[in-house]
Simulated scan of single mutants.
Amino acid sequence: MKLYRFITGPDDSAFCHRVSLALSKGWQLHGSPSLSFNTATGLMNCGQAVTKEVDGKDYDPDMKLGEQ
């Protein structure tokens, strides 16, 4: 089964650590990162899609993707 996540957050080191943690757990980058400016907060927001192949499991909408 192939899992998909889209990690989002402010453009700061915490976002980079979240993506790095996902990569250390076997997730792979999928496509280019995205950036958008939030005029209400004055912050730049980032997004990065990641995917992961998981054998021996069936998809369940209740699964916590970040724990896979």
Rank of each mutant, 00 (worst) to 15 (best):
N38G: 03
C46D: 05
Q68S: 10
S20D: 01
R18I: 07
F37E: 07
H30M: 07
D12C: 10
S36V: 15
G47I: 00
F15S: 01
F15K: 01
A22M: 10
T41I: 04
G56V: 02
L21Y: 09
S24I: 07
D60I: 09
S20F: 03
E53S: 12
L21R: 12
K52N: 08
H30A: 08
P61W: 00
L21A: 14
D55R: 11
T39L: 12
G26I: 01
E67F: 10
R18W: 04
S24F: 04
Y59H: 07
S20V: 05
P10M: 14
H17A: 14
G31S: 03
G9D: 06
S36K: 14
S13D: 15
S36G: 15
M44G: 08
K57F: 11
P33H: 05
M44E: 11
P10C: 14
S32W: 02
M44H: 07
V19R: 00
L43K: 14
G26Y: 02
V54Y: 03
V54T: 07
K52F: 02
H17Q: 11
Q48E: 07
T8R: 06
L65D: 06
F6D: 09
C46I: 01
F6S: 08
S34G: 14
R18L: 08
V19A: 05
K57S: 13
Y4P: 12
I7A: 02
K25V: 02
G26L: 06
A40W: 10
C46Y: 01
F6A: 09
A40D: 14
V50M: 09
D11V: 05
D60Q: 12
H17E: 11
V54Q: 07
L21N: 12
F15G: 03
D11G: 08
T8K: 06
L21H: 13
F15A: 04
V50K: 02
S24L: 08
K2D: 10
A40G: 13
L3H: 05
C16N: 11
F37T: 05
N45F: 10
D12P: 04
D60N: 13
A22H: 07
T8V: 12
V19Y: 04
L43W: 09
G9L: 05
G56Y: 03
W27G: 00
F15Y: 06
L21S: 12
D12Y: 08
H30K: 12
